[in-house]
Amino acid sequence: MSGNTPDTSDEQPMNTANTRIQFDHDRAMELRSQARSGPAIPVDEFRRSSRRSFLTGAVGIVGAGVFWRWVQTQPSDDRVPQVLRSVLESNESIWSNLAQGRTAPEYSIDQATPIEVNGTRGMDDEIDLDAWTVRVEDPGGELLDELDISFFESLPQYDMVIEHKCIEGWSSVVHWGGARFMDFHAHYADRVGEVPYVAMATPDGGYYVGWDMASILHPQTMLAMREHGEPLDQAHGAPLRLATPNKYGIKTIKRIGVIRYSHERPADFWAERGYDWHAGL
């Protein structure tokens, strides 16, 4: 182009137009070749094969309908169709083997906000906090200890600012204070031996949760006594509740009245009402 003489300038628009026509033609041919890149068959052969395809499609629709009906009419296992309950349990073992024991991010204290009250089951009336004790039981139901709050206050104290997540979808960054469950467990490990589960319940038994050992011994599983440096109020589970960033809030029982080691997977209030037992994050 650099060799062009100035007197060609009046032909420039013409060239551009030609170029565009040439381009449009090339583009159309390129796209046409794309559209025709697949193999072709005679029309009568196509008619035969398409009958077969539609038949396959019809069978597929019926099959999908039967499958859906089969899922919906499964006997229910804790209010969820059995097959879905099995999938929830498979999910649990997939994730337990994949990444159990990872640590959730923690935040700075000024990011914390007050947590909302979102559940009062097992806490119908206020209790006398001075009279409160927690029963610790071995797998046989034998009483190991009846502890008041001073025991938990004597354990190493931690602060933890984590994102508390509700299974409903909301979450908030909360500043908890208290003792790690693993430090509590250290006092009973020898006496109870190898135990796979821990159950906890409110004093009136109105709310109860089950935990697997790996989750409850996670360093971020806390027996909380304080929120944002202040003693818990009763609506948030005073004097002792669970807190963790690694399971949904349904597992963080308030107002703990019983801690029982268990060989069987313990009953869980919300798992009995259709939710995942593990509820791990």
């Binding site: 697949g38 193999p39 072709a40 005679p42 499609g57 597929g60």
Partner: peptide, 26 residues
């Protein structure tokens, strides 16, 4: 002959969606 029927003067049936694509789509 074979797969390509690039130019034709009567209608043909051209493969548009391969079998796997159809199954996965549906």
């Amino acid at each position: 002959e074979g797969a390509d029927t690039w130019i034709h003067d009567e209608p043909v049936a051209r493969l548009k969606h391969r079998r796997a694509i159809r199954w996965l789509h549906w």
